[in-house]
């Protein structure tokens, strides 16, 4: 009995000694502020900042501060707190949100073939142009959904297109990278989430696009003419609305013959009484 106790005590002391020595010997001196900054960051470890996890960004912020370092997930508020703690000027960036630029739902874009490979947009994209006549549009297999760490995208079963939740999206940009067709764009969130954008990325000629999809941009240029702020540019049969120049007047929305220009979060238009 006494023997056992002695052995265990000696063993305990011995091992504690080993731990002590190792801890002293291999101690790494680290700026204690890194821990604090890491605590201020959202802790999502999504890698959207370009660093491996929040600690990576925290280390960079403490040791190597620059205007380039930004956590899109935490946004202005987080970066403000961090900047205050570090005694720096806060970086302010316009909040952004992922926007799906394809309106080719099942109803408007006829499906011509049936994909039967591994369920992945990346695999499908390397196999062929797509199951519809449009070689630019959404493949609908949800690579963007599976890559999202914030559960902010889901596939709408009725349209076959991904839907981004404004509230949940942190504009980390993972879906933008995951989409082999480069359909998703990070765009200014806009006041009260109001945005006007072209929901199409087809560079086909108008006739080709129209044949493949009823909701595609046919490059007619009507929106360019109607825009008073010079915010819309036309390139390769595709209109693009510059989010910085756009004043959200929505004239282009009504002008677009295919409905490819989409507005979000505007209050419903007042019905003008017919005279």
């Amino acid at each position: 009995m006494i023997y056992t106790v002695v052995v265990l005590v000696v063993l305990g002391v011995l091992l504690a000694g080993v731990l002590f020595v190792v801890a002293k010997r291999f101690h790494v001196e680290e700026d204690p502020r890194i821990d604090t900054v890491e605590g201020l960051l959202p802790g999502a470890n999504c890698g959207a900042c370009g660093y491996p996890g929040c600690r990576g960004l925290a280390t960079a912020l403490v040791t190597d501060y620059s205007e380039e370092l930004y956590c899109p997930v935490g946004g202005a508020s987080t970066m403000g707190v961090v900047a205050e703690f570090l005694g720096r000027a806060a970086v302010v960036r316009e909040p952004e949100v992922a926007v799906v630029r394809c309106g080719g739902s099942c109803a408007v874009r006829p499906v011509l073939s049936h994909f039967d490979g591994a369920r992945s947009c990346a695999v499908a994209a390397s196999t062929y142009a797509g199951q519809t006549g449009c070689s630019f549009g959404c493949l609908g297999m949800g690579d963007c959904v599976s890559v999202c760490d914030f559960d902010a995208i889901y596939m709408d079963a009725s349209t076959g297109l991904p839907v981004v939740s404004d509230e949940k999206c942190t504009s980390c940009g993972k879906c933008v990278k995951a989409c082999p067709k480069v359909i998703i764009e990070l765009r200014r969130k806009g006041p009260k989430g109001r945005r006007v954008f072209v929901s199409c990325v087809s560079r086909d000629k108008g006739a080709v696009t129209r044949k493949a999809c009823q909701a595609g941009c046919i490059g007619c240029g009507k929106c360019v003419k109607v825009c008073e702020f010079d915010a819309i540019a036309m390139a390769d049969n595709l209109a693009y609305i510059d989010p910085v120049k756009c004043r959200l007047c929505r004239k282009c929305v009504g002008e677009c013959p295919t409905g490819a220009i989409v507005e979000t979060n505007f209050p419903p238009k007042k019905v003008v009484a017919e005279v």
């Binding site: 073939s113 049936h114 490979g117 695999v123 196999t127």
Partner: peptide, 10 residues
């Protein structure tokens, strides 16, 4: 096209 062709990788 009346036939809906199946597409898959090899």
């Amino acid at each position: 096209m009346e036939h809906k062709l199946t597409i898959s990788p090899s």
